[in-house]
C-alpha cells in the first residue's frame, strides 16, 4: 500500500529527501565526520560506509568472530515498550556474505527481524529485509539508527540499561552466531553512546 502518488499539503511539504541527498553526503564525506553524517542514507549508501572507530566501546563490548566476520559494538536500545532494536557493526575480512535473518529465544521475545528504514513517499517506514542484508567482501556494515537494525518484538520484559538481549544472527556463509546485546539508554553510534558512557543516567 505504498502510494507514491503526489501528496499535496498546503504549502508545507517536507520530505524524505534527506535520504537521497544523504547518500551523496555520506559518500562525499567519507569517514570521520560521523556525528553529522546522515545515517538515513545507509539504505542506499551503505556498504563501504565509514568505519567507526569503536575505541571506547571495544573494551566493554567484546568482538564476536564467526567465519570471516567480526561483529562488534553490539548494543540494544533500552526501552519501556515491548520492542527494541539491536545495533552492531559487522566487519568482513573475506568474501561477500549475507545476513539472512535473526532469531531470538522465545523465552525472551516473540521474534526478531533484520530491518531497514526506507523512504516511502514523503515518509519513512521500516521493513524486513527479506532477501537479507548484504555484507560486502572486505567491507564493513553498520547497523545503526536510521539505517539497519535487528528489531526484537514482543519482548517479555522491557529492556533496561544493562539487561542482556541474546539473539542469533544467521549468515549465509559464516553460519549462525549467538550474540549478547547489552541494553543502553543511548545507542547512537557516533554520539555519547559507547558502552562506557554511563548508560543509567538520571531519568
Amino acid at each position: 500500500m505504498n502510494s507514491s502518488k503526489p501528496f499535496r499539503a498546503g504549502g508545507a511539504f517536507i520530505a524524505a529527501g534527506v535520504i537521497t541527498l544523504g547518500g551523496v553526503f555520506a559518500t562525499g564525506c567519507g569517514g570521520g565526520d560521523t556525528a553529522t553524517t546522515p545515517t538515513a542514507a545507509a539504505t542506499t549508501a551503505l556498504p563501504a560506509s565509514p568505519t567507526l572507530p569503536p575505541a571506547t566501546a571495544a573494551a566493554a563490548n567484546p568482538v564476536v568472530k564467526v567465519g570471516n566476520l567480526e561483529i562488534s559494538n553490539i548494543r540494544a536500545r533500552a526501552t519501556v515498550t515491548d520492542t527494541t532494536a539491536v545495533y552492531l557493526t559487522i566487519k568482513n575480512n573475506g568474501a561477500a556474505d549475507t545476513l539472512l535473518s535473526a532469531a531470538v529465544d522465545p523465552a525472551v521475545a516473540a521474534m526478531a527481524q533484520v530491518h531497514e528504514v526506507v523512504a516511502s513517499g514523503g515518509t519513512m517506514v521500516m521493513q524486513e529485509m527479506k532477501a537479507g542484508l548484504p555484507i560486502p567482501a572486505n567491507g564493513t556494515v553498520e547497523l545503526k539508527s536510521g539505517g539497519y537494525h535487528v528489531m526484537v518484538m514482543n519482548v517479555k520484559k522491557p529492556v533496561a540499561a544493562g539487561d542482556i538481549v541474546p539473539i542469533t544472527l544467521v549468515f549465509e556463509k559464516a553460519g549462525s552466531v549467538a550474540i549478547k546485546a547489552p541494553g543502553q539508554d543511548d545507542t547512537s553510534a557516533g554520539g555519547m553512546g559507547g558502552a562506557s558512557a554511563s548508560p543509567t543516567m538520571a531519568h
Partner: peptide, 28 residues
Amino acid sequence: QVSLGIEPAQKEDLGGGNYAVSHAAYVI
C-alpha cells in the same frame, strides 16, 4: 499530519500481529 505536509501514517505488516507505521522521520 496532513496539515503539517506529512502523508498520513500507514501500517505495514511485520507478521505475528506486529506492524510498523510509516511516519515522517523529522522533528519540526
